[in-house]
Design a protein around this nucleic acid. Structure first.
Length: 154
DNA sequence: GCCAACGTTGGC
DNA sequence: GCCAACGTTGGC
């Protein structure tokens, strides 16, 4: 099983929004970055687990855990001209973008803040991509060692 | 609102 | 294939 970190802006879709969904499951769609597309399509597998990270908010940080309930499938929002993520270059016959389904496993009692993660940037979390300057990918891999360490902080 | 970082686009 | 312009992300 691989581990990941998924970013979401809580003003758009928060972990509480996920908790309120039927079966606590949502389609993780709207990804329009090729690197992230490739990861979703080729590397993210059913049963993988991911941290749910709140970005662009008062206290950025990790707020819970989700699991991959469904592997990559064509992102239907790309086919809808009225959708904000519409892409005329993506068709059902030849889809360019992919989505996955994620299901909430746990909402942390507190936020493991970005500041807190940074405290370990020179040691255990030195390779964590979210701590790299300029990292903007909405999906990033997390090593098992990093995963276990962050879980111990929560 | 500012700014750094970086991906994408398009002219050449 | 290069690179400037532009758009987006995200912390602050």
């Amino acid at each position: 099983m691989n581990h990941w970190l998924l970013k979401s802006e809580p003003g758009t879709f928060s972990i509480d929004d996920l908790a309120a969904r039927p079966r606590k499951t949502t389609s993780w769609d709207g990804v329009r970055n090729f690197q992230v597309r490739n990861m979703l399509r080729d590397a993210v597998k059913k049963g993988d687990q991911a941290f749910f990270y709140h970005s662009s908010c008062a206290v950025p940080g990790i707020v819970g855990i989700v699991t991959v309930a469904r592997e990559a499938y064509p992102d239907a929002t790309a086919f809808d001209p009225k959708d904000a993520h519409y892409d005329a270059a993506s068709t059902p016959e030849n889809p360019r973008w992919y989505a996955i389904d994620v299901k909430l496993i746990a909402r942390f009692d507190r936020v493991v803040t970005l500041d807190e993660l940074r405290e370990h940037a020179s040691t255990t979390l030195s390779d964590l991509l979210i701590l790299r300057r300029g990292n903007r990918l909405s999906v990033t891999p997390v090593a098992k060692r990093e995963w276990d360490f962050i879980l111990s902080l929560a």
